[in-house]
Design a protein around this nucleic acid. Structure first.
Length: 427
RNA sequence: GCGUAGGUGGCGGAGUGGUCAAUCGCAACAGACUGUAAAUCUGUCGCCCAAUGGGCUUCGGGGGUUCAAAUCCCUCCCUACGCA
């Protein structure tokens, strides 16, 4: 009955509301083969076995506990057999702490339904209400291109298509065709060898109607079962933990059903997936976390703006990964306690103060906004490095501070004080 | 001094009688980015306005031809190269 546990999750303290009621949030630790993750924890994204612009030593020094890479990307390049040969992800990329891999499920979405469209992990109302479709139609008329009304999907450029058994991808690198099934995703993730891996799921577009969400959810549930069964049939399940993923779009009944079905499967933890409208996220997380088994860790996939992290921590998520800190950093958008700034703006050219005067990161301790502005304007490589150090430090330490505040019993004071200043700065 | 090629918006550089306030690139100015198709993408970029439109002044200076000129002619100024 009891199989060896690849990770051990301990809850140290639960969040208590001011009226004495228990909230969903909690503080804990996840023990993996390669070290401990103190939760809630921000998971640094290193899709292609590298946190863009940073060495592993920098990532470690700025306080990251864990790095997440991507199955789809590493399978295509350099190929998972090579990574296995190189000693797994840890050995290959020289990161000796805990690691995770995403299953490639998100690429079903970003290379499929969302490909070429203005839809992303967080989607504004415009695209949900179909404004982009209308604009494309107008453009089509302008160019006298006949629109095939009954088959708009055929016109949509996508390089991933779904069938019952799996997903066909056209490599974004060289155009070659690849077929990934749940089992194949787990096989690849076994070769990559991260401490925590994810079941292969279908992340749906919020534009899809209920009927499709229903169909996709059932498929994701079947895939979850296939992922889990294959995983447990392999020795790797003794050292790698597998997380199942909850989907269900914006629908309460689907989300709850998914939490119950996936939550009842013997996963080592759970991921909450999906593409959200901003206002949907908090409710979806609450529906799901009220139902998931309390004693297993929960990962809110792909989330990470400061206000979202506060919501996620309050509502019982233990892990969250996000490309925002590093992607924003590389395009010159930095987090500060007073909101985000764009270092490219003219007002920073001669600003000799640090990005955030209260920040203790390497960048803020040693460099000014004027210097960062100069690095960006002159397109120097160091810009992305110093910027990523700051943004990751900011987000990781923000989460660490919130973790501590739960231990100290002042989460609500700390988080609302943060939000007040942060939102005022963003206007 | 003679010859040749040129002088276009902050810069580079298209255009060579009408559809030109003038392709494009850079710079500049702003915005976006949430399980990384991303060191990326988008918008603005002569001036003004009651602004999915309208008005005004522009293509070295001046003058002309024409219904119409950045584009043709004359003249002056300037630049590069060649010859003296």
């Amino acid at each position: 009955m009891s199989r060896p546990q690849p990770i051990k999750f301990n809850i140290e303290k639960k969040l208590i509301k001011s009226n004495g009621e228990k909230a969903l949030g909690r503080v804990g630790t996840i023990e993996t083969m390669h070290g401990i993750i103190n939760t809630p924890a921000f998971v640094t994204v290193g899709t292609k076995a590298t946190v863009k612009a940073l060495t592993p030593e920098m990532v470690k020094d700025l306080g990251a506990d864990v790095v997440l890479a991507n199955t789809y990307h590493l399978y295509l390049q350099p190929g998972d057999p090579l990574i296995k040969k190189a000693g797994g992800l840890q050995g290959f990329m020289n990161w000796h702490g805990p690691t995770m891999t995403d299953s490639g499920g998100f690429q079903v979405f970003s290379l499929g339904a969302a490909y070429g469209k203005n839809i992303s992990k967080i989607t504004g109302d415009d695209s949900i209400t179909g404004k982009n479709g209308a604009m494309a139609e107008a453009e089509g008329r302008l160019r006298k291109i006949p629109l095939i009304a009954e088959a708009p999907e055929e016109l949509a450029p996508k390089i991933a298509t779904i069938d019952e058994m799996g997903v066909t991808f056209k490599s974004h690198i060289d155009g070659s065709m690849h077929y990934i099934t749940p089992r194949r995703s787990i096989e690849i993730q076994h070769n990559i060898g991260a401490d925590i891996i994810f079941a292969f799921d279908e992340c749906t577009s919020p534009n899809e109607p209920f009927a499709y969400q229903r169909e996709a959810l059932d498929r994701t549930h079947r895939w979850a079962k296939q992922s889990l069964e294959y995983h447990h049939s392999q020795k790797n399940s003794e050292k790698q933990a597998l997380f199942g993923i909850i989907q269900g779009g914006r629908f309460e009944d689907l989300r709850k059903e998914s939490a119950e079905i996936i939550g009842a499967m013997d996963f080592d933890g759970y991921g909450i997936g999906g593409s959200f409208a901003k206002e949907d996220m908090s409710t979806a997380v609450q529906w799901v976390n009220n139902l998931l088994p309390e004693e297993k860790p929960r990962h809110l996939l792909g989330i990470g703006e400061p206000e979202d992290l506060i919501m996620a921590i309050e509502n019982g998520c233990d892990l969250f990964d996000c490309v925002a800190p590093t992607r924003n950093a590389r395009s010159g958008t930095f987090y500060t306690k007073n909101g985000k700034i764009n270092i490219g703006n003219a007002k920073f050219v001669e600003d000799l103060t640090p990005i955030d005067d209260s920040c203790k990161c390497y960048t803020c301790k040693n460099y000014s906004r004027a210097y960062m502005s100069h690095l960006f304007k002159s397109k120097e490589m160091l810009a992305g490095t110093l910027g990523s150090i700051h943004n990751l430090y900011f987000i990781i330490h923000m989460v660490k501070d919130l973790r501590q505040s739960i231990l100290d019993g002042n989460f609500y004071e700390i988080s609302s004080a943060f939000l007040e200043k942060y939102k005022a700065g963003n206007k």
